[in-house]
Amino acid sequence: MAIMRIVVTGPVGSGKSTFVRTVSEIQTVDTDRQATDETALLKATTTVAMDFGRVTFGNKMSLHVYGTPGQERFDFMWEILIEHAHAYILLVPGHQPGAFRTARRILTFMEQRVRLPYLVGVTHLDVPQAWPLPYVGMAVGVHPDLLLAVNATQKPSVVSALVQLIQRCHTRRTQSQLSAQEV
């Protein structure tokens, strides 16, 4: 069976666990524990290892979705997740400007470490104090083409984000094949 692995990353409270749960056909394996540090100010629990969800199509295709740990510590868990990923999506809570810096750090980290297709999904845009999408994009330092609004609680929104990411992988694959042929 061919498996595509997508990593969902982002600051605390960006909706990573919800995103994985919304699309998964199995009960997600989450490792949420009571938050004890400054994270507790934002939410009661946080993911200490990773979230895992899966969508399978027949016996030939499967999509595995992994959520990174909530707290921003770039340790062995990131190593494992990134090393085996095909693409990633960075979620940014549009209503928490205090999280933009963390999102930018994560994006810089990912861009420097791996050359993978990615998208940046802005969540919580329905909250009245949420920032406009283009300003969130600028605050995170991402090209507008890679930016999209995501509602992590709504399956159509999560599926649409995943489909766009897969299409991005496909386009990149085709482009690299074409440049290989030219060489």
Binding site: D75, F76, W78, A85, T108
Partner: peptide
């Protein structure tokens, strides 16, 4: 700002 990996090993290219 680029956070450096907490472990000694730095990541290379993805191996998926």
């Amino acid at each position: 700002e680029l956070p450096l990996l907490a472990t000694a090993k730095q990541l290379g290219a993805a191996s998926a």
